[in-house]
Design a protein around this nucleic acid. Structure first.
Lengths: 269, 269
DNA sequence: CGCACGATTGCACGTAACACGCAAGACTCT
DNA sequence: AGAGTCTTGCGTGTTACGTGCAATCGTGCG
């Protein structure tokens, strides 16, 4: 009988949760699984279905979940656009940069696309293309081109950096060592004329450095907010000719050092 | 309400929609309003609640909506990103299978996840996990776990098969050759007790075969509609002990051949 | 043109889940 | 320790659900 209100029911009888904890747990389970079943909850939490129903009614009242027949499901699933919010900065600029870069890519080209939101915009403008091969380490670009049947899409392997939504590490470099491309498009967290590309980790800079070496032409896509910035301590030097693509909001102070370099072409869009 | 095809505003007798149109309309109403009520639908569409229930059951099966007590609501949590409507079939079964598999995965485990919608559901149930390493060749699983900070996520390289949203090819196998795991979870387009896993291309079967060899435990996740089917001509044999995880809708006829195999464990959920 | 077949619908029935009230145990606060 | 509050389990009546069955509609084929 589940009627036993006493804890002595058995040695392994783990302490029954209090009501609030139980509801919080239920809410979390629903957020995780998306769906729960009354009977299962009752069994696993060792209370009667009635109690579970009451809990679910309460949580529904709070708008946390939604009841279904025999269970409940996540209600506020509109909370998940976490990816879009921080990329929200300078979208228009990034998009212009991406579009310009896409125009640079011609039929039959093979290109390497770095991870990042700007290269993501670039990928967006490649969706309708055909006769094109894209090699990428970025989940954003992957998303953009996942349904683009006309594009041959090759991903690098690697460990996902959740913050930057890109693959890095030895496996990424291993696979990259098997590939080359016509054009390489890199993003940057920070860009310095003398030092190169600045990123949060050496894994990223190491991969970018290797990417830069694997194509005939090299483009660095960076909106003007990145120019002259060095928010982190890991650097990827750029010791071959390359092109800086930035937005027209860049000041002369920002662009000056880059224009002074002999092997760098500066493009503002 | 685009329902009224006749402007003559007849007595009240507006032409009754055909079944398909009605279901489409219901789906649209749910997408728009977020929530509908069986009784109201029955009244406004001039059919009985039974018919509405049947429609809702069908739409639920397709993953378009979710039933609630007395009505239905929008279900698009994970469905929204792609137009992946064909994954809609047997969502409930796939989800149960995925959940069961997720429960099999413990702290500290390293697992290999094949591409596919079922493994995608498995990945979904791993989102809140920590102390877990996931190796995958599937874009769906990648999407599910992209924001899961607690999960170490490693992707295989390779060329994207747009139809199956998975990576295949020499690069996938190259990277896989550098990795092993505790548990391997494979999906299948078709499954035959004697021949193994059936897929549309040799690239896929080749990779699956290699995956199967790279883990200590092997699980094949396949809802009952896949059992005994051989829709394609490329096969990946399963010549080591493995476990079949399918849904309880599988018939004894379907399960018999698998139960007869000495090294196969059959699990229905 | 008529017939036969499949799809769809309404109805009826049994089943499952739900809401509510009540009483007893558990917790908290003074 | 005692009183009050919260919580829980159970019982009852209600509602919604799902399915089988027969009638109807629509469609394609001979």
């Amino acid at each position: 009988m589940g009627a036993a209100m006493s804890q002595e029911a058995g040695v392994e009888e783990r302490r029954r949760l209090r009501a609030g904890d139980r509801r919080e747990l239920i809410a979390r389970m629903i957020q995780t699984d998306g769906t729960v079943v009354v009977e299962e909850l009752a069994r696993s939490l060792e209370v009667t279905p009635s109690t579970i129903r009451r809990d679910l009614a309460l949580l529904t009242e709070q708008g946390v979940i939604a009841r279904t027949y025999g269970g409940a499901m996540s209600a506020g699933h509109t909370v998940e656009p976490t990816l879009g919010q921080r990329s929200g900065l300078a979208v228009a600029e990034k998009d212009r940069i991406g579009r310009w870069a896409a125009a640079r890519i011609g039929p039959g080209d093979t290109v390497i696309l770095d991870a990042g939101t700007t290269t993501g915009r670039l990928a967006h403008h490649l969706r309708a293309r055909t006769d094109l091969t894209v090699i990428t380490s970025g989940l954003t670009t992957l998303r953009e081109l996942a349904e683009a049947d006309g594009v041959e899409l090759i991903t690098l392997a690697g460990t996902l950096r959740h913050v930057s939504q890109g693959f890095v590490g030895p496996l990424a470099e291993l696979t990259l060592s098997r590939l080359t491309a016509d054009k390489v498009f890199l993003g940057a967290d920070g860009l310095d004329a003398r030092r190169g590309i600045c990123e949060a980790s050496l894994q990223q800079t190491s991969l970018k450095e290797m990417m830069a070496d694997r194509g005939k032409e090299l483009y660095v896509l960076a909106d003007s907010s990145k120019l002259g910035q060095s928010p982190f301590t890991a650097w990827a030097p750029l010791d071959r000719p390359w092109a800086l693509v930035t937005d027209s909001g860049a000041t002369d102070d920002q662009l000056g050092p880059f224009r002074a370099l002999p092997d760098v072409e500066v493009i503002t869009v």
